[in-house]
Design a protein around this nucleic acid. Structure first.
Lengths: 223, 223
DNA sequence: CGGTGTGAAAGTTTTCACAGCG
DNA sequence: CGCTGTGAAAACTTTCACACCG
């Protein structure tokens, strides 16, 4: 059960995103007491084919037992190793408005070893306030805090007109990955990873589907 | 400049998601005063090729002027028509915790004609409270409110262990599309569209990239 | 000239189907 | 037998390259 990460960029992004879904489901199954699972069971739960599950895992090594399936505990550890979440990741958040404060309070992503270790804002009224045990600092302190705490990941939770400016500051401070909640595509060098969350875009995907009646009522399934 | 929506399911999901990005960028450009744009300009801003932009739009008709490009105002209207956001979409939200309240306050998705028209919770202490001008109702009222207000879209913002139960109730009330903020893949009939937002999964995509050093510092670009 | 629209080619991802294993 | 791992085939998506247009 060795994990091989291909050194070339041969793993499609979409495989990595499914890996996250496999992990989430496996953790649920394991805490429900399930010990092993087959590729077809896991695929059915998530709306994928059995072959897809096996091919995806096959990118990184051999984890299964013929005739049995996969051991949940082993596979969880293996996927966490692949995703890099067996170590902990301190994260910085910029923007302490409504949404930022809610995300601070929402401890759901701690389950995967991410924790918000510093919060910044540019509003003088907010600086010095403590929320969820974390003191809001002025954004000019970004470089030294990132350095001191070894933080490589950041979240942008500021209004859209400030987002690119904040991104530039994170960049200058040496950030390596950004989750952007502002509705704008950031211009960043390709060495900095970017993922984006935009509720309007999610809703648009739904309104397109409903408007154009793509749904084909075929009974139980997933998207 | 007629819009043709293929009646078969011939438009890939990924095309629709890029359409949303085109729209977002076009709206930004237009409000900055830009009148026309070429496929290569738009592509460069978002990290796509010019051919991809043209092919994507080509799924729905002909919108450009050879030698000129696209007129921002026309293309915005056309894409909104395709996505279905020239009409307004009332949305229901289930779960009035931290995150739910923050989303209620965050008016960013109003820009695309979505508005939260009703909020439900199961906590007796919350029912009857008014937040952002909307009164929180008991979840048992779901069917009648959906019916009365013609609501087809819902957002699930409850803790993970309640999410599937809530999804079942939305389903029973006749919902057609769900944005799910809980970290679980919902089991739903395929006629109901589902999109999912999970911060831990977004962060995992970044930690994978950093762990496996996929970035290849090639100067300005996008993901 | 600068740009669109679009078939055809190239590249990528998914599915199939089956050998092999415990 | 039940299930994995994996080449080969099929399906799908992106890129290329060029006719055509104003």
């Amino acid at each position: 059960m060795t994990i091989e990460i291909p050194s070339d960029a041969s793993v499609p992004k979409v495989v990595v995103s499914r890996l996250s879904l496999y992990l989430r489901e496996l953790q649920r199954l394991e805490s429900a007491g399930q010990q092993t699972i087959s590729s077809s069971q896991l695929g059915t739960l998530l709306g994928f084919s059995d072959a897809q599950v096996r091919k995806d895992l096959g990118c990184f090594g051999q984890f299964g037992y013929p005739g049995v399936g996969y051991r949940c505990d082993e596979l969880i550890l293996a996927i966490r190793d692949i995703l890099g979440t067996n170590r902990s990741w301190p994260v910085v958040m910029v923007g302490a408005g409504n949404l930022g404060q809610a995300l601070l309070g929402y401890r759901g992503f701690c389950r995967q070893n991410f924790s918000i270790e510093a919060v910044f804002d540019s509003d003088p009224l907010k600086i010095g306030q403590t929320i969820q045990g974390i003191c809001i600092q002025h954004i000019d302190k970004l470089p030294e805090v990132l350095q001191a705490k070894g933080i490589r990941l950041g979240m942008i939770v500021v209004p859209v007109h400030q987002a690119q400016t904040v991104a530039d500051k994170l960049l200058a401070a040496g950030i390596e990955g950004i989750v952007n909640f502002a509705p704008i595509t950031l211009t960043l060098p390709s060495r900095v990873q970017q993922v984006s969350v935009d509720l309007a875009i999610e809703l648009e995907q739904l309104s397109f589907a409903l408007t154009n009646k793509l749904a084909k009522d075929l009974g139980e399934s997933h998207s």
